[in-house]
Nucleic acid binder design. Structure first.
Lengths: 205, 205
DNA sequence: ATGTGCATGTAACTTGTTACATGATTCA
DNA sequence: TGAATCATGTAACAAGTTACATGCACAT
């Protein structure tokens, strides 16, 4: 069996939902897949060709009246078994590349006013996205109801990733706000008093 | 003024703390910097040469009795002003590449037993790292006391990144545990009842 | 002698981004 | 006519990883 790349896994995973053209796949990768993986069309088209050369996908040319013709890709039986195996395989270790956190490690050499602006800005952005995700969550819950909790339906998987998005934005907004608070509190003065951000106490061991 | 790459920023940031050889820089990048940025020695040595060609660092050959000679790099005045400006500049947007979350979006096509093993495994790993970070936090607090909250000292910056590490591991462990719980609850049955993971309610707008 | 840690580099390869290139159709 | 969306590709470049390569010093 051929070893899948992550991008190959993404594309096969999307094609498991329904047949799509490269263009449509690229759009899904812009949203919502971009929250956990990204790829431009210049990477997608060659990867589709590669998957096809391994017989994991096949395509059919589809003419359209109102638009240019497109190649609609479908996953093959071989593709299905490959992606199912891949989904439960150990993920490659994530390589953290977080420039804000990196810059936070250099806070000490910085002008406090500029840093404060930076962290307050990030805090606001994370709060905005959090509110948006929470609205989406309520929508999905209203839309699907108990059907949301069907392990074998894509809705559930989407819900699971949405929950992680909420947790992520929540945690990051809190941290950014705490950093900004510390900068405000400490700049100018040498006064120390309290401890850390309100890290979720409910699950804290 | 020359435009810094992120790697250039990392190296200058470390050299702001003290002069170091490429080898020492590589070790710092393994730990603790690897929590937010990574680089191998094969990338570090050429980057140091590049920084030197822009006069942002300089080096001095240092002979040692017990070990091979080394090149100790120091940051120049130009380097200092470049990195100080860089630290408060807008970070490049982070490109999320989270293979576990990607695979979570494909949970629906998967064998529940295998998935359960995966998420329980991750939960345990995150809890272990969380415990470790919390121990480090207590150590730092005991070690530096009120001195920890000096905006202009590296200890404070390190503490800030440590707090983010704690928040991250906390959030991720909670999410992984929740996913695993859902898989346990839903596999075999079609029974639905509750909602999401205990997302930190204290700050939740 | 053999392995490990210190120390510095280059080369080949992979992945991903930006830019180049083309062409149809629709809407203002 | 010109911009926007749909649609598919290639080429050049940048960043990062793996592998190749060398050599000293110390401990077993």
């Amino acid at each position: 069996m051929v070893q899948l790349t992550t991008l190959g896994g993404v594309l096969l995973g999307l094609l498991m939902r329904k047949p799509m053209s490269g263009y449509e796949l690229a759009q899904h990768l812009k949203y919502p897949v971009s929250n956990y993986w990204q790829a431009k069309h210049s990477q997608i088209y060659p990867e589709l060709a590669r998957l096809r050369s391994h017989a994991l996908v096949s395509y059919e040319r589809v003419e359209q009246r109102d638009r240019p013709a497109k190649k609609v890709y479908s996953i093959t039986e071989q593709g299905k078994s490959a992606v199912k195996e891949w989904v439960n395989s150990e993920p490659a270790p994530i390589v953290p590349r977080d420039e804000l956190l990196l810059k936070a490690s250099m806070l000490w050499m910085t002008d406090p006013a500029g840093a404060l602006r930076l962290y307050r800005g990030y805090e606001a952005r994370h709060r905005a996205r959090l509110a948006q995700y929470e609205a989406t969550k309520r929508e999905r819950e209203a839309e699907h109801g108990d059907d949301l909790f069907r392990l074998d339906a894509p809705h559930f998987s989407d819900y699971v990733t949405l929950m992680r998005g909420i947790g992520y934005e929540q945690e990051r907004a809190t941290w950014c706000g705490w950093v900004a608070d510390q900068i405000e509190r400490l700049s100018g003065t040498i006064a120390p008093d309290i401890a850390g951000p309100e890290v979720d106490a409910s699950t804290g061991e």
